[in-house]
Design a binder for these strands. Structure first.
Length: 590
RNA sequence: GGGACUGUAGCUCAGCUGGUUAGAGUGCCGGUCUGUCACACCGGAGGUCGCGGGUUCGAGCCCCGUCAGUCCCGCCA
């Protein structure tokens, strides 16, 4: 209750427990700031109301110790109020003090001095007990709790059942790498931790639980990023007898509820973009719509120009695409070089630059273009245009990155803007460059668009899926699809993906059997919950909204996982480890 | 798997072109102090410059390797 005391409490006798945030020892009088999860309150130890030995104790107590104080809440003298503190009008006048949990000097500070950087990430993770005491992280975890509860309330109120699915599941060779768990009773066999509850939730639909949700822990053994942890939480949703619109509406309602929990108003319905349009206009399937800067096709303007780079690209069937940056002409040569470096790092050979200044175009390719080029490119005075010549699969990622960086530099991003968009009609499959076969864009259970069923045989790459992603400010919040519920369609898609009937039976037999048992049409969506919490908490790393996160090397520094196990445990699991790589490295070092 | 950055006192950081005894703030310890709130003031302790090797008369600084953390690419159906 430390943080909740107010003027109205003045005169009441209270007993408060908390952690010593700071100590100010003035000699004859001592102040302790005592902190609990609700906030901080000042406790004053003064001979007028504090026995001498209690006062001596207060002078000796170390920060971060757990104390229990009894005393009377009093209004502070007018000149001693603290407007920076929610409890700053009052203080607790201590009569007693008990140190219930004396603390060693903290390895990292909890109460930071003004302007001080937080401790290094490694130390924060190693001393997580202390780091989690910081008010920022406490606020993040409180918000996370509220989002979890709001999710449960919202979905339960709409008839969705929370059903848990197994954590020990069947390994799947497709998709991300599995975390494996050896079986003790079945030598040589393994469970896998779920990458998502996908098949379980579909089979729940087959069993008649027509509305399901779960706050599902998912595990993927892939390399990490600031917004990617090896274990994470999904809001996993599935419903029967639904079409895309039902899921879209449900998802928008949930998003409204969750953002409201964080005090943000969200307008629905969200705008929508077909995947093909998103790629054409933004070069990416999760466009940031907080600003314009749409890409456009300038191939016609460059066609016939005697300029080697664009001529070669156009002759090879590529295009010249680019974007106009209003006011971008003021970028220095160096700044444009930096944008070009970004385009290059995304795979482009370079950027073709055109600057409109003083009513004329400037740039190395100007002399190859007609006199009406500026008008045809829609360029106004002071604009800069940047182009990439080549196939779309090169220009898309390059222009996407350039567009994002240019928007930042031109300060086109309105603070606080929330630009939601649905991206619809994803392709069903794409050709895997190295394997030379088709792979599912979403996953192998996604329903083909009913109008495109014939394309599965004739031109699979053009077939659309009934899949949808919801995107906020260029970040994917969630995605889902209507699933295949007809066993013959599922078998056709497996075939398309190069999965033989035999493989399909071995790997997904339980799904096919389920679909043959009488399956309703169904579909769903999943949201990355941690990322959502991070966004709403205004955090820049997932680690700040997870109580006990892993490092980018998937280590848990706090408890020390993963860890070696005694040989007896390994042999009970019928395992032998082979760390010969490390052994060879060590030997070479001698 | 690849790239970039970082690693100096408990914590946050500085340390010049390679040159005498490696510094500051904060925390910690001791002292003074009755209205502070980053209390103030005085004094003190505190260092494997991540680790290993090399270059050099001499390395915190240069080179190679390695470990850890972070960010990015690949990867993440």
């Amino acid at each position: 209750m430390c943080g909740s005391l107010r003027t109205a409490d003045a005169g009441t006798r209270v007993r408060i427990g908390g952690w010593v945030h700071r100590r100010r020892d003035l000699g004859g009088i001592v102040f302790l700031d005592v902190r609990d999860r609700e906030g901080i309150v000042q406790v004053s130890f003064d001979p007028r109301w504090t026995p001498a030995e209690v006062l001596r104790g207060a002078a000796a107590v170390g920060v971060e110790s757990v104390v229990l104080v009894e005393g009377e809440v009093g209004a502070r003298p007018a000149e001693a109020r603290n407007a920076d503190l929610a409890t700053g009008e009052v203080e607790v006048r201590a009569a007693t003090l008990m140190t219930l949990g004396p603390a060693a000097t903290p390895a990292i500070p909890v109460a930071r001095t003004r302007g001080e950087e937080p401790a290094a990430e490694e130390l924060r993770l190693r001393h997580r007990v202390l780091d989690l005491r910081r008010p920022e992280l406490q606020a993040n975890l409180v918000l996370r709790h509220r989002l979890l509860q709001a999710t449960r309330r919202h979905l339960s109120d709409r008839g969705f059942l929370e059903i848990e699915t197994p954590i020990l599941t069947k390994p799947t060779p497709e998709g991300a790498r599995d975390y494996l768990v050896p079986s003790r009773v079945h030598p040589g066999e393994f469970y896998a931790l779920p990458q998502s509850p996908q098949l379980y939730k579909q089979l729940l639909m087959v069993s008649g639980f027509d509305r399901y949700f779960q706050l599902a822990r998912c595990f993927r053994d892939e390399d990490l990023r600031a917004d990617r942890q090896p274990e994470f939480t999904q809001i996993d949703i599935e419903a029967s007898f639904v079409q895309r619109e039902d899921i879209v509406t449900l998802a928008e309602g949930l998003i409204v509820a969750l953002f409201a929990e964080a005090g943000l108003a969200v307008a629905t319905p969200f705008p929508r973009l077909a995947y093909a349009d998103a790629m054409e206009r933004y070069g990416v399937d999760r466009p940031d719509l907080r600003y314009g800067l749409e890409l456009f096709d300038a191939s016609d303007v460059f066609r016939g120009a005697d300029f080697g780079i664009t001529r070669a690209a156009l002759a090879a069937g590529g295009r010249v695409r680019g974007l106009r940056l209003p006011g971008g002409a003021r970028f220095s040569r160096k700044q444009v070089d930096e944008l070009e470096a970004i385009a290059k790092s995304a795979g482009a050979a370079g950027l073709i630059r055109l600057r409109s200044a003083g009513g004329a175009l400037e740039g190395p390719v100007t002399r190859f273009l007609g006199p009406d080029a500026a008008a045809r490119l829609g360029m106004a005075d002071g604009d800069l245009a940047l182009f990439v010549a080549g196939p779309d699969h090169v220009s898309n990622p390059a222009l996407d990155r350039v567009r994002q960086e240019a928007a930042r530099r031109l300060e086109l991003i309105p603070p606080g803007a929330l630009a939601f968009v649905w991206v619809l009609d994803f392709p069903l499959v794409e050709r895997d460059a190295e394997a030379g076969r088709f792979t599912a864009v979403h996953h192998p259970f996604t329903a083909p668009h009913p109008d495109d069923l014939a394309l599965l045989a004739s031109d699979p790459a053009r077939a659309r899926a009934v899949a949808y992603d919801v995107v906020l400010n260029g970040t994917e919040l969630g995605g889902g699809s209507i699933r295949i519920h007809a066993p013959d369609v599922q078998e056709r898609v497996f075939r398309l993906l190069g999965i033989t009937a035999e493989e399909a039976r071995a790997r997904f037999g339980f799904l096919l059997e389920g679909l043959r048992a009488g399956a309703p049409p169904h579909g769903g969506i999943a949201f990355g919950f941690d990322r959502l919490a991070m966004l709403l908490a205004g955090a820049s790393s997932l680690r700040d909204v997870i109580a006990y996160p892993k490092t980018t090397a998937a280590r848990a520094l706090f408890e020390g996982a993963p860890a070696a196990v005694p040989p007896e445990e390994l042999s009970a699991l019928h395992l032998r480890t082979d760390t010969s790589d490390e052994a060879a490295g060590a030997a070479a070092g001698d």
